[in-house]
Amino acid sequence: MTTTTAFAVLCGLLLGAGCWLILVRLPFMRGNTFSDRIEAQLRSRNLESRLLRTPTHNLTPFGPLERIVRPIIGDAITYLSRFNIGSAALGKRLARAGSSKSTLDFRAEQLLWAGAGFVMAVLVVVISAAAGQFSPAFLVVCVISGAAGGYMLRDYVLGQRIRKRESAMLSEFPSLAELMALAVAAGESAMGAMDRASRSSSGELSAEFGLVLADARSGKSLSEALQAFSMRSELPPLVRFFDGLVVAVERGTPLADVLRAQAADVRDAAKRELMESAGRKEIAMMVPLVFGVLPLTVIFAAFPAIAALEISL
């Protein structure tokens, strides 16, 4: 396949995709939903001004192109949401990552990343075809791998964000727990101590304290707000901490002792994890020592003797 043929194939694919987008967005190709049918009757009751609506932010730097493709992505997400592909688990993961995005927004980002991987795979195929190395099997494998890789890469980035955020929360937890213990010992209530800790610090855990306080001030009890956080978190030290707070608030046990004990437990767990990490790294350091440094030492030690034997012979 020559360069002209590869360019013609690429232009044909782009033209076909454009014609397909125009066709599927025609009015007779789209069925009216129930909300669309009754919108004309409810328009007089909807007094909200369009100027006061929250503007939609673009997820990519391609503003006009994104606005063109967004309806197609919305239709695809709506179709996939019928199968309920881990929506509850995904919502919990987004909450653990501290993201305000909905599951539909995340699925849209995954589709965009998959599209980017697909485009990169097509470019690789076109470049290889221009070099005279076109293969249908390579085309199929490269395109599928690119799209699947982009889709899974977005999920991997979310997992890395969750691990980084939870690590930061664990590192902040002992200091905030002791600060709350001091506030409680000075006469503050549990809610007041949490408010003081969240206002006196900045970080991931203090932001979570702010969310708990916002839930408590919106009408929920403090116990319900704490239980909601323990349900969306999977860190055992934090779950034990908030469960201990719930028990202390409900039964009236001393909070200061509970907070100090929780902070001491987290510090001990951090020390154990540090020692385990040092042990694993010590074992990993044996690999370059045994296979790299030790053979060179043996060679330098034995080479003079071997050279002397060869000279004597």
Rank of each mutant, 00 (worst) to 15 (best):
L170V: 08
A305L: 14
L47R: 14
D215A: 11
I144F: 15
R260G: 00
L52N: 13
G203S: 02
S312K: 13
S202H: 07
L158K: 00
L47S: 11
E39M: 08
M29F: 13
P27R: 05
C19W: 09
S218G: 12
G115M: 01
F134Y: 08
N58M: 02
A263E: 00
G98T: 00
A116S: 10
S230T: 04
V258Y: 11
V212I: 15
A130P: 03
L123A: 07
R280E: 12
A216H: 05
F28K: 09
I299N: 05
F300D: 03
D215W: 09
L222R: 01
S202A: 07
V258P: 04
R25H: 13
R37D: 08
P295L: 02
S175M: 12
F138W: 14
A225I: 01
V293P: 04
G279H: 05
L179K: 07
V290M: 14
G203Q: 01
E39K: 09
G210H: 04
A6N: 06
R217L: 04
I127A: 11
V119C: 03
V140E: 06
G149T: 01
E66R: 01
M180N: 02
G203M: 03
Q110Y: 05
I73N: 00
I283T: 13
F62V: 02
F62D: 00
V258T: 15
F242E: 01
A130G: 14
S171Q: 13
S171T: 10
R165D: 01
L26E: 09
R37L: 11
W20A: 08
V258A: 13
L52R: 11
L176S: 01
W113F: 11
L274I: 10
N84Q: 12
T54S: 10
A248H: 06
R53L: 12
R67K: 15
R217D: 06
L211W: 10
L289K: 04
E273A: 15
F7M: 11
I68N: 05
A270V: 06
A261M: 15
A307G: 09
L222T: 01
S200C: 05
A89I: 04
L213T: 00
I22S: 11
A186Y: 07
A76V: 13
V298G: 02
K92P: 04
Q262P: 07
I77K: 00
I85P: 14
R232T: 04
A148T: 15
S233M: 04
P304R: 03
I311F: 11
K164E: 08
A131E: 12
L226F: 07
Q110E: 10
T2W: 09
A308E: 13
D265E: 15
A278Q: 02
A181P: 04
A131S: 14
M275S: 11
R280T: 13
Y151C: 02
V247Y: 14
A301V: 15
F34R: 11
I162Q: 02
A116W: 07
A183M: 07
I311Q: 14
I22G: 09
L205P: 02
M180E: 00
F242N: 01
E178N: 10
R67W: 06
E234I: 04
V258H: 15
V143E: 00
G18P: 03
L123E: 00
D195R: 08
